[in-house]
Amino acid sequence: MFRTLVFHEVRPVEELYEQPRPILVADGYEDALPLPLFDSLPLFQEQINYLKQEGFHSLSISEVRAFYEQGQPLPEKSVLLTFDDCYQSLKEYAYPVLKEAGFQATVFVAAGWLFQTPSRYQPEVSKVLSKEELKEIADVFEYANHTTHFHERRGTTQSRPMWETAEHFKKDLLLCNEQVALTDVFAYPFGLYDQQTVDVLREMNFCLAFTTKSGINTPETAPLELHREVIPYTMPIEVFKTMMETEGK
């Protein structure tokens, strides 16, 4: 059994503003990242330190794949750390903390959002990294599919894979797979999906796909509907510890 944690932005406390922060992405999609998808840097450091001190093992995707496909057991205390969307804070703040702890993590890449060249860190927006910068931090992160241009939404109920045809979705997935190493692993944009989305992934031989539904992943969990815990800055460290202690038993 294991929990999967998902982070989006890790920021110093002084950069946590009380309003949604606009995103800045290469393909021009406009949206805003709400405050619950941010984690404060001090709290993130405390969370990672706790996992390290308590002997948690940070999983690789290959270990999760073997767990579901071959029944390979996982270490007693296992956690899969994930990040979505590749914002600049991934390199600026999350990377050094994870590297120091000796942890690895999986990043879900919206390939169409990546810039061609690096740029200065911009705290006033949620700006996405460049392809070159992802290579620079690949000793800690492995990269998986989060669509190319389909990371878009209509309100809070639909993501683009849900309203496009299956064929258009397939083409978008293939484009993203040209940019990532983990070509059979997916995270649903905004955690939104329907049966057509799942069917397309299965048809294209994706072996793992992650939701944002809370829960522990067990051998009985559907591999294309795996649970992930969204970790917001409002989660007290004691709540985090209790959640992880429950997983470790």
Rank of each mutant, 00 (worst) to 15 (best):
Y193I: 02
L24Y: 13
L35H: 10
R160Q: 14
P223T: 05
F38V: 08
A166P: 06
D39R: 15
Y93K: 00
N217Q: 02
L59A: 03
Q195A: 13
E124T: 14
L224S: 01
E100A: 14
Y188W: 06
L174E: 11
G28H: 08
S60W: 08
L174I: 15
S126A: 15
Y87W: 08
V140P: 05
T242V: 11
H151R: 05
E46Q: 14
L129Q: 02
S130E: 05
D199K: 12
L74A: 03
T4C: 12
F169G: 00
H57N: 10
T234G: 07
T117D: 14
R11G: 03
E133R: 01
Y87R: 01
L43G: 06
L81C: 04
F67R: 05
V200R: 01
M235H: 05
A181H: 13
P12H: 11
L224A: 03
L16I: 15
Y193R: 04
L74Q: 02
Y68H: 10
L175G: 08
L114C: 03
L90Q: 04
P42S: 09
N205R: 14
Q45V: 08
F44H: 04
D31E: 13
T157C: 14
T212D: 08
K135D: 11
M235D: 01
L43D: 05
K52M: 10
R11A: 09
R11H: 12
F83A: 00
T197E: 00
L74V: 06
E164N: 12
V97D: 04
G71V: 05
V64N: 00
L98T: 00
E92N: 09
V200K: 00
G112T: 03
M235K: 05
T197I: 06
Q70I: 13
T211R: 01
Q196W: 02
Y50W: 14
Q72K: 15
G191N: 01
V10G: 05
L35I: 13
E92A: 11
N205H: 15
V10H: 02
G215R: 08
P73C: 10
A66H: 06
D199E: 12
K171P: 01
A105H: 06
D194V: 09
T197Y: 03
I23N: 10
K131P: 03
A222P: 13
I237K: 06
Q196I: 08
L134F: 05
Y188C: 02
G248A: 15
N205W: 13
S40V: 01
A105V: 06
R228S: 01
G191C: 04
K135G: 08
G71D: 07
Y121W: 11
N177F: 07
F186N: 00
P42I: 06
T212M: 12
R154P: 10
F56Y: 07
R11M: 13
V25A: 02
E238T: 12
P12D: 09
P236R: 04
F7A: 03
E178R: 13
Q45F: 10
W113Y: 15
A181G: 15
H168Y: 12
G112H: 02
G102T: 07
K131C: 09
L175C: 12
Q70Y: 15
L134C: 04
A144T: 04
P75K: 07
S119P: 11
L208A: 01
L81A: 02
R120S: 14
K249G: 11
F38M: 10
E178Y: 10
